[in-house]
Amino acid sequence: MGWAVIEMCETFVNLDIVVPNQTRYLRLVGAIAEQLAKELDVQEDTRDTLAFHLNLALTEAVANAIQYSSAANSTDSVRICFSVEDAYLSVRVYDHGGGFDLAALPMPEFDELRERGRGIFFIRSVMDSVQYHKTDSGNVLEMRKKIA
């Protein structure tokens, strides 16, 4: 089962979630992302769009992490860390797979109608910055979104 530790105060949010690397948990991850958007101090008219965008970015990022981790270790889990500092929400998704070169990923060729390869494009479309790098605790996809 997944678990969550939630700490919140007015200017800082820390939320760490660990879910098994199974796609059935994508719905839960998306729902947590939507709920978080409702808790953040953002303009009321942007809240629903923010909720959708966080749901989408997290769904795509965690689906990728599950795919990478599944190939390496079927009993692995995926860790997701949310934090809010100043005017930015930062979301980090850790995976333990072989990693990939984010900078080398091409833009999708819209005319080619490929069935795969749009996940990172969606994340880039709805977040303000996306980075992927290796750390001591695995690879991390870090996504940032300005919220104020």
Partner: peptide, 14 residues
């Protein structure tokens, strides 16, 4: 809600 894999499934159908 639909994600990139859902779009991929519909493209496969198309």
């Amino acid at each position: 809600f639909i994600d990139s894999s859902g779009l991929g499934a519909l493209l496969s159908g198309y």
